[in-house]
Amino acid sequence: MTTLTTTAASPGMRRRAASFLHRHAGVRLSLLLSAPLAWLGLAYLGALAALLVTAFWSTDVFTGDVVKVFTWANFTDLVTGEVYRTVALRSLGVAAAVTLIDLVVAFPMAFAMAKLASPRAQRWLVIAVLTPLWASYLVKAYAWRVMLSSDGVLGWGYGLTATVVTLSYLWLPYMILPIYAGLERLPDSLLDAAGDLGARGWRTFRTVVWPLTFPAAVAGSIFTFSLSLGDYITVKIVGGKTQLIGNVVYDNIGAANNLPFAAAVATVPVVIMLVYLAAVRRTGALENL
């Protein structure tokens, strides 16, 4: 085999590589992990780290250049500035309101889908809830702009309420699907047992259904909360003059050309999300994602 010409050498090479890989699981694993980890572990996490570092820099007032000297100034401005506190609290309020509205709307829908519909109907209902997820995000926000405009179908005008309504609409399927999956896993026999023991509808819900589907509802809330918290596009489309954290970040990069401050503001939703994730981890919600 060793005397073969170069053209015939490649199958031999291939064979040897294959048997080498077969025998060395560690090499196989390193090869498999190399590219994904270089991309997401090094490049992406590195980019996030670089952003965090930038948050501690400042910009020169006259030239607009980034000054690479450590300072707490951005964070001090962020904490002491009343405007930013208001905007941060407003964003939190919007995220909480959207999550609550979605929960109240989604739960009965998911319950009817999982427990009242026939298996055949269930399949179609899941498709019906999924389909709007594929329709463009912008298109759906735009649809609400059309309906809310003063001469539109609803004609409520734009503002904070319009933002909450539109965001609730956008993320509703993300709440329905986990709750539906959670309810589907809940055996009907438990509901029957509660009934046999004398619990009526509301009591069964309070003592059996809700405690067992709570992790699924929290899983849904992670989507609705996180997606609302970082949004600035919907606010621009239907929010009128309303500002959320996302807009402050955006404006500081574009108009104000102050990347360090934008980076500092961007840590706010990240920290809120990390706290939220840490708080809900104990409920087992992360396994329901």
Binding site: A47, L51, S226, G230, V249, Y250, A263
Partner: peptide, 13 residues
């Protein structure tokens, strides 16, 4: 999982 704007400015930076 992180807000899109965070990923966006981290990468552009």
């Amino acid at each position: 999982a992180l807000p899109g704007i965070v990923t966006g400015i981290a990468l552009s930076n």
